[in-house]
Nucleic acid binder design. Sequence first.
DNA 1: CGACCCCTTGATTAGCCTCAACAACCGTGG
DNA 2: CCACGGTTGTTGAGGCTAATCAAGGGGTCG
Lengths: 246, 246
Amino acid sequence: MGFLGGSCLAERLSHYVTLTPREQAALGTLEQQERSFRRGAVVRREHDSARDLFIVRKGWLHTSALLGNGSRQIMRLHFPGDILGVSGVAFARAADSVVAITDASLCPFDKDRLACLFEDHPRLAALIFALATAERVALADRLASIGRTAARARVSLVICEIFARLRIAGEVDNALHIPLTQEEIGDATGLTAVHVNRMMRALVDEGLIERSGSIVRLLDEVRLAGEAGFVNRFAKIDTSWLPAAR
Amino acid sequence: MGFLGGSCLAERLSHYVTLTPREQAALGTLEQQERSFRRGAVVRREHDSARDLFIVRKGWLHTSALLGNGSRQIMRLHFPGDILGVSGVAFARAADSVVAITDASLCPFDKDRLACLFEDHPRLAALIFALATAERVALADRLASIGRTAARARVSLVICEIFARLRIAGEVDNALHIPLTQEEIGDATGLTAVHVNRMMRALVDEGLIERSGSIVRLLDEVRLAGEAGFVNRFAKIDTSWLPAAR
DNA sequence: CGACCCCTTGATTAGCCTCAACAACCGTGG
DNA sequence: CCACGGTTGTTGAGGCTAATCAAGGGGTCG
């Protein structure tokens, strides 16, 4: 709220380019509806019809998949301003599930609206493509983390990423309430909750972070990022090639 | 070659929509240049300037990253018709390296050309976005595989994916020359070459695949895909929402 | 023919999982 | 208000999967 007619997406995008009034208006139309979800609610289940995309207005959510062996992989965390359910762009049925981690509020919009954006606002379409690409790179970073680094580094990486992404939205210092269970962190990192617990403890013991309840404070951010091999993919993206605004 | 004026990308895209002559012409302009690379050649190194994207005309390549601990993660394999170096859409400098696995031939084109596509051919832009999204979902599948499944399933998945993706290009039965070393398969699956070897042997012993040299034959594709939890993300994508062609 | 790369197999080690028990916390209902 | 069940966090003990270390064989290229 409190920005550009209350459009969370416009607020996010304006972090990278200066939006024209027409563009702001176009983005505003994507957030006309709003739906609320309780903590734990399933926004969309795998294989559901996937005509809608969502813009996160409030809360944390995750995109995940259940595997044949009963385990779960969390693909991505979502924060206010994120577009989620993007896999619906490629498929008629959802490839993954979306679950509310905290109470959350979403603005659904139909794929057709996205088509209109491609028709009328090529610059916005290209920018959204660029941001989706940055997310893909961040996903690849996590792939490398899970595939090729030890448990401590994996846990460090999610912590780094959460802080970095929330800082773009602003209002985050170096302490943060993280409403994730250790089981959820495990499902994001490919570890068990038990081992996440031990790794968190190790990070605390070595003075990298501090915990009280669900609040995490970064004590030595440089070393934490170093161990994790963290690169902030969202700080700056290349907008030099984007077509002109309309 | 042998299709639509020789554009590999047009050939790929026409698998999903019927291209108009204007669209074909626009795609053709992306493949005016062509560069050849020898097996093992580095097309682009991490941190290099990333103004160009590439369309694969011939050969196999991979996108990978080297980690601080000396290991390597292969993010994606590339086959003819693929667009690679897409991370350049988001960043001014490459987030990953591209290496030729076999002798390969690529058509580089500048990001500005992509901007033109967004301006003049919204339907193509949207389709490319949809395909990039399908790839992101496939990447997420591999994340789940590496994070939450055992070594055998991970190896099975790469095999399934390679076959499925090459079948879209056609001319692949259920036997295929796979020019990957076991080390490369390990770097793609988060395993060591030694363990890849053992898992391949297990797949052979149980009659799921057959090997002679670098040729792999699928003997029980259903069971292999079942173990891997494989879903073919490239068979069919939703084009119903795309804007009208111009 | 030698050097190098890749594949293959065995033996040992280590990191993470599994199982288990208990404490702390929370929302709910009596 | 307290009792209660359920969820989450914490810690220990032991087991298994995959890594590491090591050695040898086959193929290819200079």
